[in-house]
Design a protein around this nucleic acid. Structure first.
Length: 112
DNA sequence: AACTTGACGGTCA
DNA sequence: ATGACCGCCAAGT
């Protein structure tokens, strides 16, 4: 069993806990998993998220600026934005305007 | 086997 | 405020 597999699954587990209408960042998840600075790995995990059995709401994970950096990895370039807007996000030019009030930090919400 | 890329983020100039 | 750099490390070339 590869060591990274556990890491990916951990990521998926966290992402699955993100409530509808809330979003978080790659870095926040990395910190929560005890791998600060490894935000890129979280991004890579999301890239492979479709391989996970359970549903992974990847659209609720954006970068620390609330920018929809991964929109191109969804079906269409508008899918991610639509999903988020459908959950109450206000987006303009791939940027979540109300990011601050939607932000959900796993470290705070799930335990430090 | 070596080098580049990447759904990132913090720091320093 | 903006931009360059560096660390993180798996996957692709």
């Amino acid at each position: 069993m590869k060591t990274t597999e556990g890491f990916f699954i951990r990521v998926y587990e966290v992402v699955r806990q993100i409530p509808s209408g809330r979003v978080t960042s790659y870095g926040a998840i990395a910190r929560f998993l005890g791998a600060p600075g490894a935000a890129r790995m979280v991004g890579w995990a999301m890239n492979q998220s479709h391989t996970h059995e359970a549903y992974v709401p990847a659209h609720r994970v954006v970068n620390r600026n609330g920018l929809l950096t991964g929109k191109h990895h969804f079906g269409g370039v508008n899918l991610m934005q639509e999903l988020l807007e459908n959950e109450g996000a206000i987006i303009d030019h791939n940027q979540i305007l109300n990011f601050r009030e939607m932000f959900w930090d796993p470290v705070e919400e799930l335990g430090l």
